[in-house]
């Protein structure tokens, strides 16, 4: 084998760089149609439902919502169920599945490694994350509207006297806000953990562990509604939408703690993580 001074001689050979002194053409992209949220949100919505898994998830959310409402009506005595009641039943399957939708919207990019393509086409990662968040919110909103329609129909069908008496604008808004908060929490955990199995497990286990901790340790009981998200949302989950100011505050504080904080941290991580 030759022992010539490979690197030194070869690297300093001027022959190859003969043309580099000429000025290179500049790239002018000012006339190119820009990619903004109006482009990216529809793209993210499309990505959410263009695979069999995605379509199944969305179909499952809609079907289970309808099924939950129908089941409750079927097993209840006529005239027993009010709309607020039914809404809280519809909230259960949605509360479980909408966050998964949010998680997958984010972690799918990492586990399927499509982030490589996504971020190459849209280098502004914050823009991509915003688009995902908006897409998740839109999907959740669609599910919420579906749930409200299902509950209203069921209430009307079951012929409950004054069945609509306990639903006002506040009820609807609280119900919607709860579901949207839930899906954002899913997105936040997705951004923070970036891996589907990890994000899904942590999303379900962490609040449960926290809830157990706060309800079993007597010293923490007073703090529970302010720090534990499940405790704070308990009334809503039970179909009681008439919250006191304090309860609303508790929902807001735990929301900041469990959704706002992870979202910030996740945003920071996902926009910086090396993509490969």
């Amino acid at each position: 084998m030759s022992t010539g001074p490979t690197s030194a001689t070869a690297a300093s050979t001027p022959s190859g760089s003969a043309g580099t002194t000429a000025t290179l053409p500049r790239l002018d992209s000012s006339g190119t149609p820009a990619v903004g949220l109006s482009t990216l949100v529809p793209v993210e919505l499309r990505k959410a439902v263009d695979t069999r898994a995605g379509r199944w998830l969305v179909a499952a959310i809609l079907a289970l919502t309808a099924a939950a409402v129908a089941l409750v009506v079927a097993v209840s005595d006529d005239g027993e169920r009010t709309m607020a009641d039914l809404l809280s039943f519809a909230a259960t399957p949605q509360g479980l599945l909408l966050p998964v939708l949010g998680i997958l919207l984010v972690t799918g990019e990492w586990s399927q490694r499509t982030a490589l393509v996504t971020f190459a086409l849209t280098p502004s990662r914050s823009q991509v994350v915003s688009a995902k968040l908006l897409a998740a919110l839109l999907l959740a909103l669609a599910a919420v509207v579906g749930a409200i329609l299902a509950a209203a129909t069921a209430t009307a069908v079951s012929g409950t006297e004054d069945g609509f008496a306990d639903v006002g604008v506040t009820t609807i808004l609280l119900f919607a806000a709860l579901q949207l908060l839930n899906v954002v929490m899913g997105v936040a955990f997705g951004l923070l953990l970036l891996r589907t199995p990890t994000a899904i497990s942590v999303f379900f286990i962490l609040p449960a562990v926290s809830s157990i901790l706060f309800t079993t340790v007597p010293a923490l009981a007073d703090l529970a509604p302010w720090l534990d998200i499940q405790t704070a949302q308990m009334p809503l989950a039970n179909g009681d939408f008439s919250l006191t100011g304090e309860q609303l505050g508790q929902v807001a504080v735990t929301g900041l703690l469990w959704v706002g904080l992870p979202l910030l941290a996740g945003w920071w991580r996902a926009t910086r993580a090396e993509v490969k």
């Binding site: 290179l24 053409p25 500049r26 790239l27 002018d28 992209s29 000012s30 190119t32 149609p33 820009a34 990619v35 190459a120 086409l121 280098p123 502004s124």
Partner: peptide, 14 residues
């Protein structure tokens, strides 16, 4: 072309 990739508008077109 003298521009950082991140600063290219719609980089996929370029």
């Amino acid at each position: 072309g003298g521009v950082a990739y991140q600063d290219i508008v719609n980089p996929g077109r370029h």
